[in-house]
Write a protein that binds this DNA or RNA. Structure first.
Lengths: 182, 182, 182, 182
DNA sequence: TATGAATGAGTCTTCATTCAT
DNA sequence: AATGAATGAAGACTCATTCAT
């Protein structure tokens, strides 16, 4: 019976998002296959992580596509983006941490993502929606940080999961400072 | 020549903040001492991390004290807080990630920190400075996420270090959405 | 090629009986397998010793069964017992020494063995074969001591191996004092 | 304040008799001195054990002297011997086990002891007190085995300490087989 | 002389990876 | 193609021993 590579990746993503130190054995067991089979599909641990990265990036890119970042106001686009990214929050958090460890060069996919998200913020600036002093690059990093950190907080039950999107969107859009018009 | 425990902790913090997977050997070498000596000072890897945690918490608490969170507006206090926390940003990031791994109970020091930071946001709400829909607990987590993520981004040279404080403060205070009065 | 757990135990028993301080590496090499494989079969050094204990106890119990301790005179039974126990003398010696080190609770198998050997001595007393002033418990300990000590002496070539059984049996049965009727 | 070498040896003997795996640190602490001081007095662990051996042998030789092995019947001499050896039983047991580990040549003192004890048994044979088929060398080994094993059994509370001498003497002299004249 | 501090050598143990079926 | 078994490389940890005061 042929093992579904995608199914394995899903299981690995689910496990590693929760426990980033899980061993290859644990991943294999979680995927319902043997250790050696896992290695047949992914040349090694790093290869597995790279595959997860690839997959994660694709997933996020799909979310970017679905969010139609160029449509309507930047605010609306940002709301759609965060809503679409939420399901991948745990994986994203894992990958960002993991990337921090890799000494080698970084998957170029990230640059592509960064560019698109940055472009959204830039569009917002150009439209007069967003401030100019907070650079798009900064905001992009901030978005990653917020998504990752909050994913963990939700996982550990320190904050309610249902507020995940709302919180991040509102913080990014409106900040903690009460704006005058509200 | 007697090894200064604090000096070892400083070296360990510096190294682990940069490379969280550093070996005990590497930590020892970074501290300029032998492997065994490191073990004489800290019973094991976990003990070392716990000590770093203790130290990190104390450092941050000192920053909280120095920031006089109860003085003046909440905004001013938040600015002072973030300025004071900056030097510990890398360590904080490491510890948060590490904490994610610990299955056992969490150092109660974190609760104390959380409580004080949350109190600041709450004070801001009560003073009418901050919105009510973003809960203090959420904002505290967000603060951690922003500090940690941006520390990494600065470390990797993706964003300029000099903007660290400004960025976080402004995002938290004003958000990306341009407020009307600006 | 699948490693036979029992074969590993045999090799370990042979080695440790001779050199109780043998390394896990040495045990592995003696068994013709790699370090890690040894750990796959036995969770750790203590686990290995425990397994040897289990095996040793079983072996000795089998010897007790084969000796039919309840048949014939106690003397005959004791002769059969010692003959049957001889092959395990080295292992027994190792285990007794090792047990001396364990702080934790002792394998209950030993109590079972003690009980059966003691019962033999008691039966001898009841039959009028053995003196009453030497308690069965003492005699059991003495038996262990004699078997272990003599196993070492034989191993080191201080005494001739062929006399092993004879010596112990005669000492236990007749003692050093010449009895009148001889 | 000058450290009393003999006092250190006494403490080491007491500790190691009880826990043969005690570390040099533990020995030092038990002797009330620092680690380094212990090394100043004994070049290394082996040297310490050798010194204990020396001391133990001397102690036992003194017991042999005090027992006046050549006086009276061999039986009387044996009784005196065992009574005199009892205090050193634990140490003797430790040393015998330790000797089993040493690969190098054995302290010649043991040969001297063996010779004297063997001589006693031989004298008993020549006097017609002891059987001829149990060789003096065997009996000497047996004596060690009994003393050591029973010392442990007493230490662990498996047998009553007060019967120690009586048991060994009676077993060696009379054996478990009821002699006719009793 | 006595000592706490420092350390290298050695052991156990884990884990990613390869091999034989 | 899939797998359990086997394994070497690598890391944590201990302990006898040396060093500086």
């Amino acid at each position: 019976m042929s093992v579904d590579r995608d199914q394995v990746l899903r299981a690995a993503a689910a496990l590693l998002s929760r426990k980033s130190t899980a061993t290859m054995d644990e991943v294999a067991r979680a995927a319902g296959i043997g250790r050696a089979t896992l290695h047949r599909h992914f040349a090694g641990r790093e290869a597995l992580v790279r595959a997860l990265e690839e997959r994660g990036i694709q997933e996020i890119e799909a979310a970017l596509d679905a969010a139609r970042l160029d449509d309507g106001t930047a605010e609306e686009a940002l709301r759609r983006l965060i809503a679409g990214v939420e399901p991948a929050a745990g994986l994203l958090s894992f990958l960002v941490t993991e990337n921090q460890l890799f000494e080698g060069e970084v998957n170029e996919g990230w640059s592509r993502l960064d560019a698109r998200v940055s472009a959204l913020f830039r569009r917002g600036q150009e439209r007069g929606e967003f401030r100019f002093d907070l650079t798009p690059a900064w905001l992009t990093e901030a978005l990653y940080g917020l998504v990752g950190s909050c994913a963990w907080a939700v996982q550990d039950g320190r904050v309610a999961g249902k507020d995940f999107q709302y919180m991040i969107v509102e913080l990014l859009l409106g900040g903690a400072r009460r704006s005058v018009e509200k």
